[in-house]
Simulated scan of single mutants.
Amino acid sequence: MKIMIIEDDLVIASSLQEELLKWQYSAFYVTDFNDVMNTFTQEAPQLVLIDIKLPYFNGYYWCTEIRKISQVPIIFVSSQSERMDIVMAIQMGADDFISKPFDLTVALAKIQALLRRTYDFTGNDIYLSHRQVHLKTSELKVQYQDQEVELTKNEMKILEVLFLQKGAFVSREAIMMKLWENDSFIDDNTLAVNINRLRKKLAEINVTSFIVTKKGFGYGLQKDEHDETK
Rank of each mutant, 00 (worst) to 15 (best):
I3A: 01
I6T: 01
E7F: 07
E7M: 07
S14Q: 06
L16R: 02
A27V: 02
A27R: 01
F33D: 03
F33K: 01
M37L: 15
N38H: 13
Q42N: 04
E43S: 09
L49P: 00
I52D: 05
I52H: 06
Y60M: 14
E65D: 00
E65R: 15
K68P: 03
S70M: 07
Q71V: 13
Q71S: 13
Q71I: 11
I74G: 01
Q80R: 14
S81K: 12
R83V: 13
M84A: 06
V87E: 10
G93Q: 05
F97I: 08
F97G: 06
L104F: 08
A107D: 09
A107G: 07
Q112M: 03
A113R: 11
L115M: 14
T118D: 07
T118V: 10
D120C: 12
F121I: 07
S129N: 12
K136R: 12
T137E: 13
V142F: 08
Q145Y: 05
Q145R: 10
D146G: 00
Q147I: 02
T152P: 02
K153Q: 13
N154E: 14
L164Y: 05
E173N: 13
I175R: 01
M177Y: 04
E181W: 03
D183L: 04
I186P: 00
I186A: 11
T190F: 03
N194K: 12
R197H: 07
R197S: 09
R199I: 03
A203S: 11
E204W: 04
I205A: 09
F210M: 09
K214E: 14
K214W: 05
G216V: 11
G218T: 11
G220H: 02
G220I: 04
L221V: 11
